[in-house]
Design a protein around this nucleic acid. Sequence first.
DNA 1: TGATTATATTCAGAATATCTTATATTGCAA
DNA 2: TTGCAATATAAGATATTCTGAATATAATCA
Lengths: 112, 112
Amino acid sequence: MISALHQFKAEFFKALGHPVRLAILDALRQGEQSVSRLAEELGLEQPSVSQQLAVLRQRGLVIARKEGTTVHYRIADPQVYVFLDLGRAIFERHLKSQSNQLSALQEGLSRS
Amino acid sequence: MISALHQFKAEFFKALGHPVRLAILDALRQGEQSVSRLAEELGLEQPSVSQQLAVLRQRGLVIARKEGTTVHYRIADPQVYVFLDLGRAIFERHLKSQSNQLSALQEGLSRS
DNA sequence: TGATTATATTCAGAATATCTTATATTGCAA
DNA sequence: TTGCAATATAAGATATTCTGAATATAATCA
């Protein structure tokens, strides 16, 4: 059975399934950052950053703090970094095993 | 800067960002399962299950083992479950804090 | 060989997501 | 008030993903 929980969890993972959003979260490891600073740091247009921040905000992953005309964003739950780092570890093992399989395959091919 | 690593990691998260794929991974906690068994268990058509298994396979998340006409799938790396469970914990805290905010908001509204 | 079972792939259409550019909003300062 | 800076939102074009139906492949068995 596909539970409603799977639906919600999928939304959560989807929020992380975008390179710019991952880059934003990584940039926020240093602490709170304004939109323009993030845009500069990541080499992106302001609207792109703002849009992806909106996605992260809607999913409750980041929190906005307004100060004059500038808006500072920070991570909502630092546990997310534990999670991302674990994901990275798993992901890197995958890469390694895939490249092993690839080189084994290449050896096999070159031998035949 | 958006690194190539962010691209790859986003692909990994995207693979998890689908309710059926999460349900399949959960079903595989019990161990290896055939496609037809998964389809029955999840109440889905065989082609749907096969399609989502293909996505998980391409991303290296599951491994297929053929036996006669049936194909058995298993998780490639059990660490993924640690990861999913951590995601679940974070996600549930989010839900809770969001529902707290929601009820606070509702109280505020009903008082005014 | 022909029939059957299990799985995989393909395809068209619908729904979503993304990107770029333009515009709106907000707060502040001259 | 006017102008400016920072951010958000909107609109449109394009790309990606999903879904469901049909079909293909592959192994087994009569």
